[in-house]
Design a protein around this nucleic acid. Structure first.
Length: 284
DNA sequence: CCTCATTCCTGCGGGC
DNA sequence: TGCCCGCAGGAATGAG
C-alpha cells in the first residue's frame, strides 16, 4: 500500500538508477498497465524509445520522469505496483506489466503490478508538471506547500477530517495508514467534522502528518505483505513503528486501551477509543 | 460546485 | 481438501 514515504523511497532509487539513461526499447505485457493512452501501447512505446530520462520527480503518490523530448512518463503504483531495477537476465516476475530496456544495458526497469490498480502513462509536454496530475495538491514535504492555505481549505470543507486527509486535491500523499497514524498522534477521531477544528488544532494535525511521513521516509517506508518494495526489491521497516494501523485489540502505546477497528469507506480505520473519542453529535 | 458511493483487480486466509 | 467469500485499498467516475 504505497503512500508518500514508499513512493519517495522508490523515487530515490529510480533517480539513482535511471537518471541520464536512454530508453532503447519498451515492452508492454499488459495493456491495462498503460493508462489514459487511447492511441495504444505501440504509440506509448514509440514516444519513449530513444528518449533520455532527465529526472525522477514526485507529487504525492505520483511519480513522473521528464524526458528530453519534453514529454514525461507518469507512474502510479496503485495498491500493488512495483518499479524494479533488474538485470535483463533476471527471470520475469509473474505480474510483469511493462519492461524498459536501456541503450547502455543493465539494469532494465520493470513495472510489476499484481492488482493492476497502478499504471504508467505518457504525459505529452508534461516534463514540468503532467496535466494528468495537475489536480493533485502539493504534498506536505513540498517546499511550496502552504500550511495556511491547507488549514483554511480544511476548515472550509463540509466533511470528516479523515476523509479530508485522504482527499488528494487538498493534501496529497496521505493514505489510509498514515492518516490513521497522524490522527492518533493528534488525538483526533477521524469522523471529527473539519469545520469544527480550530485553526491551531488543524495546524497541529498537519504537523503530525508531516512528522509521521518524515519518520517513515527515514525508515524506507512501510511494508505489510512484501507487495511494496524499493527498486532493489527490499521492504521498508516502518511497520514496526506503527501505533494504531493493523493493531486491533492490542494496547494503545499511550494509554493501554485496546485499539479499535471501525469500518470506513469500504476499508478499516484504527484508533484508540480513549485517546481519540468519537465526536459528540452537534445536535442529537 | 460539492460530497460521496461505486468500481476497478488479484491473492490470501478464514470458515465450513 | 477444496471452495467461497471477505478483505486489502487509491483514485477516476458519475450520481445526487
Amino acid at each position: 500500500m504505497p503512500e508518500l514515504p514508499e513512493v519517495e523511497t522508490v523515487r530515490t532509487g529510480l533517480a539513482r538508477w535511471v537518471t541520464g539513461r536512454t530508453i532503447a526499447s519498451v515492452e508492454v505485457h499488459h495493456p491495462r498497465a498503460i493508462r489514459r493512452h487511447l492511441p495504444g501501447s505501440a504509440h506509448f512505446a514509440a514516444l519513449l524509445t530513444d528518449r533520455k530520462i532527465l529526472d525522477v520527480r514526485r507529487r504525492g503518490k505520483y511519480l513522473w520522469l521528464p524526458l528530453d523530448s519534453g514529454d514525461a512518463i507518469v507512474a502510479h503504483l496503485g495498491m500493488s505496483g512495483q518499479l524494479l531495477c533488474q538485470p535483463a537476465a533476471a527471470p520475469e516476475e509473474v505480474h510483469l506489466r511493462v519492461r524498459l530496456r536501456f541503450a547502455d544495458g543493465d539494469p532494465e526497469l520493470r513495472f510489476v503490478d499484481q492488482r493492476t490498480f497502478g499504471g504508467l502513462a505518457v504525459a505529452e509536454g508534461g516534463a514540468e508538471l503532467p496535466a494528468e496530475i495537475a489536480h493533485i495538491a502539493r504534498d506536505p514535504m513540498d517546499p511550496l506547500f502552504s500550511d495556511a492555505a491547507f488549514v483554511a481549505a480544511l476548515r472550509a470543507k463540509h466533511t470528516e477530517v479523515k476523509r479530508a486527509l485522504l482527499d488528494q486535491t487538498l493534501i496529497s500523499g496521505v493514505g489510509n495508514i498514515y492518516a490513521d497514524e497522524a490522527l492518533w498522534r493528534a488525538r483526533l477521531h477521524g469522523t471529527r467534522p473539519t469545520g469544527r477544528l480550530t485553526g491551531p488544532a488543524a495546524l497541529r494535525l498537519l504537523g503530525h502528518v508531516r512528522e509521521v511521513l518524515a519518520e517513515a521516509i527515514g525508515h524506507g517506508g512501510t511494508s505489510f505483505d512484501a507487495l511494496y518494495v524499493n527498486v532493489n526489491g527490499e521492504s521498508g521497516y516502518f511497520d514496526r513503528s506503527l501505533n494504531v494501523y493493523g493493531r486491533e485489540g492490542e494496547p494503545c502505546r499511550r494509554c493501554g486501551a485496546p485499539i479499535r477497528r471501525e469500518a470506513f469507506m469500504n476499508r478499516s480505520s484504527y484508533s484508540c477509543p480513549r485517546c481519540q473519542p468519537r465526536p459528540r453529535p452537534r445536535r442529537p
